[in-house]
Amino acid sequence: MNSKTISTEDDYLGEHHVYEPHHVGLPPFGPYFRELRRRRGFAFELARTQMHAANTDTALGQIWLVLNPMLLAAVYYVLTVVLVRSGNNGQKVVPPADLIAKLSPGQIANYGWESFAHLTSSLFLFFLVSTIILTGANSVIQGGALIMNTPFPKMLLPLSSTYLAFRRYLPTLLVYIPIHFLARRPISINTLWAVPMVAEAVVFGFGLAMLFGTLQVYFRDVASFLPYFIRIWLYLSPVIYYVENLPKAMKPFMILNPLFPIAGGYGEALGGHAPSMQMVLGGAAWAIASCLIGGLLFMSREREFAVRL
C-alpha cells in the first residue's frame, strides 16, 4: 500500500520523507543532528546579522562592545575596592587567610588590583552565561514567522544566541588582559584551564537557553522574571567574592550552584592555579545535565512551537 522507502539523507528536504507521529515526542536523533550540522551556517549567519542590526559590526559598535564592559568594570571597581577601602577607615583591605596562601607577594601588595582583576574576569564570564540565557529565552519567539513557514531543526535558534553571546564575550578579553598584568597575576600552564572552563560555561548556558526558550513559548512572562533570578544568582556565585571568602558551613551547599564550580574554576585558572578536579568535573556535570535536560525538553516540544506562536 505505502512505499517502504525511508528517507536516509534528509529529514526535511531531499527526495522522499515521511512525517509520522514522533516516538515519545522526540524526533529521530540521527537525522535531526545531521540536519542541525548541515544548517549550522544559519545559526552563525543569524548571529552575524543580529550584530549587524545592532550596529556592533561598525567601528563605533566594536568600540562600544569593549567600552561597555570597561565601564561596568569601573563601576564594580568603585564598589569593591574604593568603597570597601573607605569603609575600612582608609586601611588597605587584607585578603582572607585561605587566599593569602594562594597569592604571590606582589599580588598581596597589590590586593586592590588583584580583587579588581578577579572581579572583572568573573563578571565577564557571568555575563557570557547570562547573555546566552537571556537571548536564548527569546530566540524561539523571535523566530516566529520562520518557524511557521519552514521546517528546520529549531535548535538552531538557541544555538545562534549562544554563538552571538560568545562573539560579544570575546572583546571583553581585550579589556581583561591589561588588568591581568596590572594585578601582577601570573601566566602559567595552569592559565590554560580557563579554556575548558569557558567551554563549560558556554555549554551550560546553551542548555539553559534551550530550556528557557521552550518555557518562553508557553509562558510569555518567563523572560521578564529572568533578569531578577540572574541578579540573585550573580550574588550567589563566586563572582564578586573569592571561593575562599565563603564561610566553611556554606561550602557543601555550593555544589547546588552550577556556576560555583564553573566560575570558581575559571577564577582559579586566571589566578594561575589549576582548579580542583571537583570543580572541573562538577562544572562538566552541570553543563552536560543542563544540555540534556534543556535539549530533550526543547526537541520534544519544538514541533508544537508553530502552534503556540
Binding site: 527526495e15 522522499h16 520523507h17 512525517y19 509520522e20 514522533h22 513557514n149
Partner: peptide, 18 residues
C-alpha cells in the same frame, strides 16, 4: 502538516520531492 512544520498525532504523510 504536509510541509513538515506540524507533526501529525496519527497517520502518515509521504512526500516525494523537494
Amino acid at each position: 502538516t504536509v510541509a513538515g512544520i506540524l507533526a501529525p498525532n496519527e497517520g502518515r504523510i509521504d512526500i516525494y520531492g523537494r
